[in-house]
Design a protein around this nucleic acid. Structure first.
Length: 436
RNA sequence: GGAGAGAUGCCUGAGUGGCCGAAAGGAACAGUUUGCUAAACUGUCGUACUGGCAACGGUACCGAGGGUUCGAAUCCCUCUCUCUCCGCCA
């Protein structure tokens, strides 16, 4: 959520930023915010003044009562009726204005960082770098959804979509034998790498309440994309970014505790409503998948340095897995709602002949922190006035990594007549060198 | 799921209608004393909105939401959560 003082002071910047996202009615929305904010302040000033008079009157009555002036007391009481009516009306007005203001504010996405290129779609993303050589496969090479039909226990599939379909539905695959073991291997590898990079491992709940969904920006923006347990009003997480970041909701972090670097493995659940069709075969798009996530909480002045570190961390993983990849800087039109700057990492899937997004690393600056009320106290010894006012922190998140498309790439890129070669870095975790 | 108790500031904890944004202690921070550490002493020590150049004011918040009252941390109602006992159970 954008900060109102920012819009008030830098409307031109906000507008230019939102236009980079091709937000058609940005100007209208910003003007609405400013107008409602103006109304809010005026109404609140008026209300505060009436309440102050009420408080004074009440105090006066208390004193009169104490001195036993019954008549004067009754007279004073009679005067409070009008004030009460007035304040009640103003309070109602204020509540409506605040609600309207909130309603507009939550529909405005984050302002893109100055380095974000303008653009409408994925075609306009900027390729930052490419790493590795794309493998040249023989003509007989198969996409992963064919490869997974073999190599499973008892000659069955490694990953069974039909079985998943039977017990749950489409997009919920069953991993079997070495298919299951390589999943576990990747999770452990990714977590160990995060630990080595100084991240603290967290195991969060995978259902969250409405406040958490709001805090990280899934609600109300992506309401329909999350599974919802109606009876208990809980959402299945679409990413562990949600519970991990919400750990710090309503928290004022001590200066000494920054930065905060957390990592978590969780399954992720996405309804992917409306996104099925071409290019979603096999592991390319699932309703349930596993992911190791990085979440960082940083002081504003350090957050872009942290973003680069996260990008390098993810790239390190891909290099160790020997997967050719490229890094994209997303354009304004392709960037997520909450993000100020996003790098996507895409792995080359040889048999499909296309890039697959396996990680998305974002700095959302204060956008989530403003909803979360996640702040820190600037240096207590800064000046003679002592402690500064609490300031919003920056939050960052990134996948490191999402498993299914990594697995798809390994299967396709490393296929040989003898079977699938496991990247050497995963062998100690798997306990086998080939899927055959 | 049943019965009972409770929810106050960073923590402990006092506060049953006005003098309470809230005692006291602890922690933390700054300073004084000190060869160092410790101790002692002094001071600071909630958040948000809002007015003001500032000094300094106003308003709201004592789990959440309603209500009673001139006035609510304090009384009433609803909800949420925590604890204890019972039941069920990985």
């Amino acid at each position: 959520m954008l900060q109102i003082p920012f819009i008030r002071d830098h409307k031109d910047l906000a507008l230019a930023g939102l236009q980079k996202r091709n937000l058609a009615n940005a100007d209208v929305m910003l003007n609405q915010v400013l107008h409602l904010d103006q109304q809010r302040r005026a109404t609140q000033a008026e209300l505060d003044e009436v309440l102050a008079r009420q408080n004074a009157k009440a105090k006066e009555i208390g004193l009169l009562l104490k001195s036993g002036q019954t008549q004067a007391t009754e007279a004073a009481k009679a005067e409070t009726g009008d004030l009460k009516l007035l304040s009640k009306g103003l309070a109602e007005d204020l509540a409506i204005i605040e609600q309207d203001l909130q309603n507009v504010l939550v529909t405005i996405p984050n302002i893109p960082h100055s380095s974000v290129p303008a653009g409408r779609s994925a075609d306009d993303n900027e390729v930052v770098l490419e790493w590795g050589d794309k493998p040249v496969l023989p003509a007989t090479a198969q996409p992963h959804w064919e490869l997974i039909k073999k190599y499973g226990p008892g000659g069955g599939p490694l990953i069974d979509f039909d079985l998943g379909n039977k017990i749950t539905g489409a997009g919920f695959p069953v991993y079997r034998g070495k298919g299951a073991r390589i999943q576990r291997a990747m999770i452990n590898f990714f977590l160990d790498e995060a630990l080595a990079a100084g991240y603290v491992e967290i195991q969060p709940p995978i259902l969250v309440n409405e406040d958490s969904g709001f805090g990280t920006g899934q609600l109300p923006d992506k309401e329909g994309q999350m599974y919802y347990a109606n009876e208990d009003k809980l959402y299945l997480i679409p990413t562990s970014e949600v519970p991990i970041t919400n750990l710090y909701r309503d928290v004022i972090v001590a200066d000494a505790d920054l930065p905060i670097k957390n990592t978590a493995y969780t399954p992720c659940f996405r309804r992917e409503a409306g996104s099925w069709g071409a290019h979603v075969r096999g592991l390319n798009r699932l309703h349930q998948f596993d992911k190791v996530e990085l979440v960082r909480i940083e002081k504003p002045e350090n957050s872009y340095q942290a973003l680069e570190e996260m990008s390098l961390h993810v790239q390190g993983l891909l290099q160790k897995l020997e997967l050719p990849y490229r890094v994209l800087r997303l354009c304004g039109g392709d960037m997520g709602f909450t993000s100020a700057l996003t790098y996507d990492m895409e792995v080359w899937s040889a048999a499909q002949g296309r890039w697959l997004e396996v990680s998305s690393v974002s700095n959302v600056e204060t956008y989530q922190a403003n909803r979360l009320k996640l702040r820190y106290r600037a240096d207590r010894n800064a000046g003679p006035q002592g402690a500064g006012k609490p300031q919003l922190l920056h939050t960052l998140n990134g996948s490191a990594l999402a498993l299914p498309r990594i697995l798809a790439s390994i299967l396709e890129n490393n296929q040989t007549p003898e079977g699938i070669r496991i990247p050497s870095v995963l062998v100690p975790y798997c306990g086998f060198e080939m899927i055959s």
